[in-house]
Amino acid sequence: MVSVLKRSLAIITLLIIGYWLAQGLAGVPFGQDRMLVGKYYLENVKAQTGAVNAVTAIVVNYRGFDTLGEVTVLFIASTGVGALLWRRKKRRTAKTEGSVVLRTGSELLFPFILMFGTYIFIHGHLTPGGGFPGGATIATAFLILYMAFVDYEIPHRLFEPLEGLAGMGYVLVGLIGLAIGSYFLFDWIWQTWHWGAANLGRLFSGGFIPIIYTLIGLKVGTELSGIVDSMLTEEVRE
């Protein structure tokens, strides 16, 4: 009996809250052009960052601090999961081997998924997507291997230092910017060295965006596969 009362009460509360939020949203009509800072970005993204994809330019260059924070968030997630599910000795929980199709398929597809992932984060400044989607695809490659094989584990001794190195790389790029251009996360490649100004829209353009995105891609890839690994292993109880 109580749960019915509770559910109806919940529905009423949520309707009122919904009505209130809708009233707020009505003040922000859908589809109108209310851009202020956005317009500035669109007009000067090509000149100031050399990237064609305005979103990635904003993500890495204009609002680089957010991305730095956001990379830390992912790093915290992987460390947190690692800390929480840490066991002295762990082994895979999988019991049944993947079917023949899965095993052979995954072995075949693994290198191509990796290549596709690297393609996404290298071309971050040109095509949609960037470090994060690229890293995610790399992680799915390892996920498939986990599903296929019972005893497969990612090479921890390689991945964890790689993760740290990639993160440090990102901050180092920022610090170099501080040293050269006296501003943290300053795009010294584009602003001071003016590399790749000529071939706008092609691979070697967009200042330090591709470098950062490769670092982010590696980092996200290793982190997500680390999370997958901690979730798919359990403690060895003597």
Partner: peptide, 18 residues
């Protein structure tokens, strides 16, 4: 407007982390 798309990129990752 590109800014919300940039913000949402971060928001999604935060959602994943939580």
């Amino acid at each position: 407007d590109p800014i919300p798309q940039a913000l949402v990129l971060t928001a999604i990752v935060i959602g994943v982390a939580t």
